[in-house]
């Protein structure tokens, strides 16, 4: 709460800069129009015009807000909340591949981490490649993956989810390996004095100790999954999803549409990451760690 006032100030400052930038960026076009029509523009009229163009270089915040309302709330009120023009529909498409990819990535990440912690050969041979795998800019080859998977008959949700999975498994592996190794030597020795089996050590010591690390990684993984899903939608021919809206908007110069898709994607990411934060707080509190 202490930070509320400073944060609000920053947000206000961003909005002010945004409006000012909209005037600066869009003024040229307005002036050209005026010269063509052969009349002088007063300053208020210029500002007014820069904030209400159809295809501005930078739409003003209220234009984006109106567009978002028209494609979400207004459509729900009209009873068409899930039509193909609704941003809810596109968000849902993006969300479903994000969620599937995130779940697959988390499962793969946890499995690999357990293997790495318990098997020395895996630790030494796989871990460097897990790190190296992230130097391949997967987002860059997303179109190829989609096309190739399409060619072998896999289409729809799964190819996009694969990209999210690839992006989200890495933070989970790294975080979980760190977490599973976080118990102190003393605690592990104590388990040995009780002659605990490896499974008992895992369930009673290693796994609980890794929880704070897991949740931190899950947040990063979720943010990466959203990016993966959006980029995965680019080469699907701009059919559905927030990424498709971005691409379509850029084809037709519909800047307002791009910005509203962008804001929607940001909201989706924020909500999903926030949800994990909520689960994290609840879990850690029940475990007495928060």
């Amino acid at each position: 709460m202490r930070n509320l006032l400073p944060v609000l100030t920053i947000v206000t400052a961003i909005l002010v800069i945004w409006y000012a930038a909209a005037v600066a960026l869009n003024a040229q076009w307005v002036r050209d129009q005026a010269t063509r029509a052969g009349h002088e523009l007063s300053l208020p009229a210029l500002v007014e015009a820069t904030w209400s163009q159809d295809k501005p270089k930078l739409p003003a915040p209220h234009q984006v807000a109106v567009e978002i309302w028209q494609t979400t709330g207004a459509m729900v009120l009209a009873g068409r909340g899930f039509s193909k023009r609704s941003l809810f529909y596109h968000s849902w498409i993006t969300f479903s591949s994000t969620a599937l990819g995130f779940l697959l990535g988390t499962a793969l990440g946890v499995a690999l981490a357990i293997g790495i912690v318990y098997n020395r050969t895996m630790d030494m041979s796989v871990m460097p490649w897990v790190i190296a795998s992230q130097t391949i800019p997967i987002l860059a080859i997303a179109p190829m993956i989609i096309v190739v998977l399409n060619a072998v008959g896999i289409s729809g949700l799964l190819p996009k989810a694969m990209i999210s999975m690839y992006l989200s498994f890495f933070p989970v592996v790294v975080g979980m390996v760190k977490g599973l190794r976080s118990p102190a030597t003393m605690q592990l020795d104590q388990m040995r004095t009780w002659n605990a089996s490896p499974a008992q050590t895992f369930w009673k010591l290693r796994l609980p100790s890794s929880m704070p690390y897991l949740f931190t990684s899950l947040k990063i993984g979720m943010a990466a999954s959203v990016v993966g899903a959006i980029v995965g939608e680019l080469p699907t021919g701009a059919v559905a999803g927030l990424g498709a809206r971005l691409l379509a908007g850029s084809y037709y110069g519909q800047t307002i549409q791009i910005w509203s898709a962008l804001i929607m994607a940001a909201t989706l990411a924020a909500v999903l990451v926030g949800l994990i934060g909520l689960v994290q707080r609840m879990t850690l509190r029940r475990m007495g760690m928060a």
Binding site: I230, L262, A265
Partner: peptide
């Protein structure tokens, strides 16, 4: 400190967003 307390949460928030979506806009600009 005032700016810092305001910018850190906003910065953390923005860092988690799909910024790459800005690409089409910047290509236009």
């Amino acid at each position: 400190p005032f700016l810092k307390r305001g910018l850190l949460p906003v910065g953390n928030f923005v860092a988690a967003l799909p910024i790459i979506g800005m690409a089409p806009i910047l290509v236009m600009w």
